[in-house]
Amino acid sequence: MFSRALRRGFAPSATRSLGRGFSSAVCPCFSSSSKAVAAAATAVSAGAAAYYLGVKPGLAGGARCEAAAAVDWTKVRAELVKILEDDKYKDSSYEGATPGPLLIRLAWHSAGTFCKETKTGGSDGATMRFEPEGSWGANAGLKKAHALLEPVKKQFPGMSYADLWVFAACVAIEEMGGNKVPFTPGRSDKASGKECPMWDGKTHKDGRLPSADMGSPDKTATHLRLIFNRMGFDDREIVALSGAHSMGACHTENSGFWGPWTRAPTTVSNEYFRELMENTWTPKTTHKGKPWKGPAQFEDPTGDLMMLPSDMVLIQDKQFKKYVEQYAKDDSLFQKDFAAVCGKLFNLGR
């Protein structure tokens, strides 16, 4: 894994032009006196954590905040970076992978269950540890992320799984060249699958997460708005969040889809939007010399890159497309909006 400084040394345009020449294969019981000492230590720890994390002390409040403040988040970050830089990590869709995209997906799918009307779901609770949420189709493959983070949770038992998942994503975004996403600890963990979020929407099979294809561009656009509006996001935020597809890849063993969206799948950048606007996308019909038998997806002329129907709808729908165009032209704008909308997403349900 490149160091963060080295990754940030490549401009998106340079990464893109360089990447064009390669295939994608190259390419997360005190006594009364002791209580006083502990309280003072907690206050200092809370202030230090707030300074380091870029948040204001006291935002989370209560016993949960005190427990989270007692965690040495600088040390947690160091352990997460070790995971991100593990050269032994492998990905079935591309070489040179890191766990960063997987850790972001974990936090994204945890927080993305939020419903603003019922005030259920969201990043608080870490209910994906339980059934039925753990087996939702959209969460396939995420048990690998749970396993990667379990040693960190054991090392810092005062930290909730919910906080760990979000913090790991924040660290991953920054380590992959993205802007810092503000993090406020204080999330709690639910006790059982009885508290998994449920929702009887019209356009999904199970769970509360978006589907990649609803059969037509119009239906897919309607579906995206239904899912994301339920969380409280508008069109611009939907497109910005979709920029997470600048990282990682799809896997046939999980979703049935295959391949990375960009040639820089371990870097936060606007490459996803540039590919959407500047590349040529046609329905995928073959894969490694054989007929493609997976779900409908699109590929570029090399067959190395892919787009989902839900990606393509971002340039098929006029309202979505205007934001795709803005981000394709301005990486700084995307980086700013992406960090902001991730911060909003990761705090849903608190």
Score class of each variant (00 low, 15 high):
6 L>W: 11
14 A>K: 07
30 F>T: 00
31 S>D: 12
43 A>K: 14
45 S>Q: 09
46 A>K: 14
54 G>F: 10
56 K>E: 12
59 L>H: 08
62 G>A: 02
70 A>N: 13
71 V>W: 02
80 L>Y: 14
81 V>K: 11
92 S>I: 04
110 S>G: 12
115 C>A: 13
116 K>Q: 13
118 T>N: 14
121 G>Q: 14
127 T>R: 14
134 G>I: 10
139 N>L: 07
144 K>G: 14
146 H>W: 15
148 L>I: 02
169 A>K: 03
171 V>A: 06
177 G>L: 04
180 K>Y: 06
187 R>N: 09
190 K>I: 04
200 D>G: 06
202 K>L: 12
206 D>P: 00
206 D>R: 05
208 R>W: 04
210 P>D: 00
210 P>F: 00
215 G>K: 12
217 P>T: 10
220 T>S: 04
221 A>R: 03
222 T>N: 04
226 L>I: 13
238 I>W: 04
244 A>P: 00
245 H>C: 09
250 C>I: 03
256 G>P: 07
261 W>A: 15
269 S>N: 10
270 N>V: 08
279 N>H: 08
280 T>I: 15
280 T>G: 05
284 K>F: 10
289 G>Q: 15
290 K>I: 05
301 P>L: 11
304 D>I: 12
305 L>W: 15
308 L>P: 07
308 L>Q: 07
312 M>E: 07
317 D>G: 03
321 K>A: 13
331 D>T: 01
333 L>W: 02
336 K>V: 07
341 V>H: 03
350 R>S: 10
